[in-house]
């Protein structure tokens, strides 16, 4: 889907709702996975894949496509759901998440899943991979852009800042980092484990363009992505404040839902909340 053809805000919200439902179903069927971070990223993934990014789902290897690197690879259920809905593969595959022989590995494997641009799951590496892609895009004089979605916990990894420093050195304006800033990591809140604030200051000290938004406010997300596209002096980071487990009351802001699959009863209760 080419950028701009896409949906209005209401239909994007509806897609995000569907992706949340798909993610929870998948994780339930798999009996394992990371619901919290899938739900927090759902609106951001929707805005990217169904509005901002230049893609051809019928031609996954189209050289001019925009790239997406899910650096927080454990949030892949929501990405798989988006790719299925865009037609990269038959949605029936979603039922096979994490099962033997599946194309949908527990963490993204670019050689197994159509539509994936990178293999990820080891936190802190995705921005570097995206930076490599962005530099080559510029070298090849192609207009594609590269989006990297980072979790907040992985900002503890020094490698993220190596990449931040290097991206600014090369002024790669075709690189956009989106932080799913749900402020919870595996062992606790960011503040308890390793504080991140003032986060914009950190990125700005590396000469990045830094924006902060509500990561569940669809118009705000679209605005920020447009602003990143129009910023031509260097890379942009969108710090998107989100809620882990967003959309399901008993999962919201709950540390325990980082990496646990809902059982049948919990899934049913969640689907009631998310609506038909």
């Amino acid at each position: 889907m080419a950028r701009g053809q896409a949906h209005d805000v209401d239909s994007l919200r509806e897609i995000a709702r569907q992706l949340r439902i798909d993610s929870l179903r998948m994780i339930h069927l798999a009996g394992g996975g990371h619901p919290g971070g899938s739900l927090s990223a759902a609106d951001l993934v929707t805005a990217l894949y169904f509005h901002e990014m230049n893609l051809r789902s019928e031609e996954p290897d189209w050289p001019d496509r925009d790239r997406f690197v899910l650096s927080k690879g454990h949030g892949c259920p929501v990405l798989y759901a988006a790719l299925a809905r865009l037609g990269y593969f038959d949605p029936q595959h979603l039922d096979t998440l994490r099962k033997f022989g599946t194309i949908l590995q527990g963490h993204p494997d670019m050689n197994k899943t159509p539509g994936l641009d990178a293999t990820t799951g080891s936190l802190g590496q995705g921005l570097s991979v995206g930076l490599g892609m962005a530099l080559i895009g510029r070298l090849d004089r192609r207009a594609y852009r590269v989006f990297v979605m980072l979790g907040c916990g992985e900002l503890d990894e020094g490698q993220v800042w190596e990449a931040a420093m290097c991206a600014a050195k090369y002024r790669v304006a075709n690189l956009t980092a989106v932080i799913d800033y749900n402020q919870l990591q595996l062992d606790g809140t960011n503040d308890e484990i390793m504080p991140l604030e003032p986060l914009e200051d950190k990125w700005r000290s590396f000469n990045w363009n830094a924006l902060r938004i509500d990561g569940h406010d669809m118009p705000a997300i679209l605005d920020a992505l447009r602003a990143a596209r129009e910023h031509e002096q260097g890379p942009t980071v969108i710090i998107a404040k989100t809620i882990k487990g967003k959309g399901v009351s008993f999962m919201e802001d709950q540390l325990d839902w980082h990496g646990v699959a809902p059982n049948a009863e919990q899934l049913e209760a969640a689907l009631v909340e998310l609506g038909p």
């Binding site: 600014a168 050195k169 950190k202 700005r204 590396f206």
Partner: peptide, 15 residues
């Protein structure tokens, strides 16, 4: 070689 950026600001941002 690299891009020191705002060195003072970065250390300050780290507290």
């Amino acid at each position: 070689v690299s891009n020191p950026g705002d060195v003072r600001g970065r250390w300050k941002s780290l507290g």
